[in-house]
Design a protein around this nucleic acid. Sequence first.
DNA 1: CCTGAAAACCATAGCCG
DNA 2: CGGCTATGGTTTTCAGG
Lengths: 154, 154
Amino acid sequence: MNLPMDDIDRKILRAIQRDSARSMQDLGDLVGLSASACHRRLKSLEEKGYIAGYRAMLDRVRLGLSMQFFIEVSLVSQSDTTLEAFEKAVKTIPEVLECHLMAGQSDYILRVVCEDATAFERLHRDLVARLPGIARVHSNMSIREVKSFGGLPV
Amino acid sequence: MNLPMDDIDRKILRAIQRDSARSMQDLGDLVGLSASACHRRLKSLEEKGYIAGYRAMLDRVRLGLSMQFFIEVSLVSQSDTTLEAFEKAVKTIPEVLECHLMAGQSDYILRVVCEDATAFERLHRDLVARLPGIARVHSNMSIREVKSFGGLPV
DNA sequence: CCTGAAAACCATAGCCG
DNA sequence: CGGCTATGGTTTTCAGG
């Protein structure tokens, strides 16, 4: 169940994490297999849990979400209740795309997006108002996505 | 071409960014449309550039990439040549999933993944060796993904 | 702009090397 | 395990409201 992944499996994973809209025929051609053999491999990889799902990637800028921030948040305490309350609240805010609990000082890093400066002011106020237990907030704006997520190294 | 996006379009985008493997029939049912009408809407959204692509999301932990870092990098200078050399090099390192040029001090934030502490030591040395113009590096480890990317707010 | 049916296409299972 | 073939389902197109 675990390790038996060969070069063809890796090729399949590499291919579909860049573009999952290909036909089995095309995918097979790409990795050097017939469509049916390729399909069998893919199903097996899915069953073994290597594939978490299939999604459409939307164009952030096209949707008007041109600003992106990494916001560092420190909490007033690191008690379980404080952390749990914060984490529960953070999950309900759509502009917060991701939230990571960081090693070191029990800080969080949030990745947020919004339309423009006005929207960010609103969002910032909203975050401070709705997230409980905040001690410090520091916003870092991304000027440019130099390298965008293009898949895991497999 | 730009604004005419109604509630059904948004429902379609919300649905496919969570799961793009549904049939047109199911997607149509979900948004209250026949398969053909839904298909026409989807094609139109693609043509208008709202959809950047379709991808398989791989399971990071299942692939053994259990560690994740946000690495802050400062460069020795902010001349165009320094920045360009750094950015070109950063794109070639597979473990660097993303790289952002940050506002403020011409710093970068890199999101990197790796297997374990040993792999991180290797990767860290590799980064310092291969990325030109580095003045300072500070690695922040994510202990836990509190909220994982689940799509843009649309 | 939608629905519903027809046509083209594709995923998928069975069977044999 | 992989290839080939057949079939059922899905996407995609088209006629009509």
